[in-house]
Design a binder for these strands. Sequence first.
DNA 1: TCATTGCATAGATATCTGTCAATATATTTC
DNA 2: GAAATATATTGACAGATATCTATGCAATGA
Lengths: 103, 103
Amino acid sequence: METENISSICKALGDPNRLKIVQMLSGCEKCACVILRAFDITQPTLSHHMKILCGSGLVNVRKDGKWSYYSLNCETLRDFQEFIGALDCEKNTGCADGKCDCR
Amino acid sequence: METENISSICKALGDPNRLKIVQMLSGCEKCACVILRAFDITQPTLSHHMKILCGSGLVNVRKDGKWSYYSLNCETLRDFQEFIGALDCEKNTGCADGKCDCR
DNA sequence: TCATTGCATAGATATCTGTCAATATATTTC
DNA sequence: GAAATATATTGACAGATATCTATGCAATGA
């Protein structure tokens, strides 16, 4: 996955409300009306946040009648998890022969 | 780790330049001057980005003479990786007995 | 068909953010 | 001490963002 896409996902999760929404969607598809009740924001604001989350690719929407059901996108989430999981906090493993001349 | 902290890290990584900086620091401590050369931004702008990255807790700074060496903070990174890794894209595992009434 | 409901869009606005030039500070070197 | 170097801070500004109210639209139900 491109750096730009990862950055876009991070940006989406950079808003506390959106991060909490993603937490709500972890392991559970939910309709907008249920999500809305969990937050102290207006319905248009939620709609705005969901649009950004969907735009990042991290969230899917499924329309059923007048309801919109949101869930996490497996492929995007896995790519994102892989990217974050690959980050290494060691200070010189990224350098050949343990000699870190990349400073 | 608190949701606010995770959100703060995501916000920091939401800027493409900052995400690339973190990628550069993965497995390798680097001084600001080296990072600067890799980007098409001015020195004050880099300083600003590094301050935000450090503020999120994801990046450490070590001063040595007139140089500043940056690296990823192991504890924060692990907490962040754990949080992201725990996200689940299944649609009803978060509900008791497989009955997802949380919609 | 008409009212209700769930959600999206449009427009407005206050705040936040990324960037730069100018400047300051601290360290090293001559 | 003066010059050079590495980094931080300040102030300004254009553009982005989160939020709201008002409104639109499609689906449902009486």
